[in-house]
């Protein structure tokens, strides 16, 4: 059921290709801005890299949260989804994963390239990509709750970030921490497993919470 939603959303995203690229370019620009601000000093950049890449990924995925439901909300398909016999949570799971595919995966693919900009070692790049791969779906899932709550509100974009950022903090800590731990030789196993735990927990809980929020917003 949610596969249908994912497939439909991907189709929609492909038609409006610009949406996909804007998020990606935002990510690239933000990551490239930091060295200009901080200076070309290599080992400062190297220690800063995971934090910068993760915060940029956080902001990029949050920028596009607003669009997750708004297009369907405006043309009424969201209304049909609520009325459909299919369980709303599965539909919402589909939409969140579609959002992840459209915004999360390009970031993950792009991060090694940007990592080189910060002169990260090979295994640090590997850990960075792995942590982003585990972390970005959680961003989309939790972000879906915020997007559903602020559906159709004026100033919704800013409000989503206010609601959702505090909830992103554990993911940011363990995501950036994974790379740092591997660089310090402690091994990133603990951090990545915790990110995996967040992923599983949010896969189960977030769609249900988003479904409740959608019903509230669409009353």
């Amino acid at each position: 059921m949610s596969l249908w939603v994912i497939q439909r959303d991907l189709l929609l995203a492909m038609r409006r290709r610009s949406d996909v690229l804007t998020t990606l370019f935002f990510f690239i620009i933000v990551v490239s801005l930091f060295p200009l601000g901080v200076g070309p000093e290599i080992n400062i950049l190297r220690t800063m890299a995971p934090g910068v890449v993760w915060v940029a990924a956080l902001l990029a995925s949050m920028l596009s949260l607003g669009r997750m439901f708004s297009s369907d909300y405006l043309d009424g398909t969201l209304e049909q989804m609520l009325l459909s016999p299919q369980s709303l949570s599965m539909l919402v799971l589909g939409k969140a994963l579609a959002h992840w595919l459209v915004t999360g995966v390009p970031l993950v693919l792009m991060s090694p390239v940007l990592g080189i900009q910060y002169d990260l070692s090979a295994d640090a790049l590997l850990v960075l990509t792995a942590s982003l791969l585990l972390g970005t779906p959680v961003l989309s899932l939790i972000g879906a709750i915020g997007a559903a709550l602020t559906l159709g509100l004026r100033g919704g974009g800013v409000l989503v970030s206010l609601l959702v950022l505090p909830l992103y903090i554990p993911i940011l800590i363990f995501g950036a921490g994974a790379v740092e731990a591997s660089a310090a030789g402690l091994g990133a196993g603990a951090h990545l497993s915790l990110l995996g735990a967040f992923l599983l927990a949010s896969l189960v809980l977030a769609p249900w919470a988003t479904a409740v929020s959608l019903r509230i917003s669409m009353e």
């Binding site: 709750i145 709550l149 609601l163 505090p166 909830l167 919470a209 409740v212 929020s213 509230i216 917003s217």
Partner: peptide, 10 residues
């Protein structure tokens, strides 16, 4: 209700 959801998630 929206406040309740964000409070509980929080």
């Amino acid at each position: 209700k929206a406040g309740a959801v964000i409070a509980l998630v929080g």
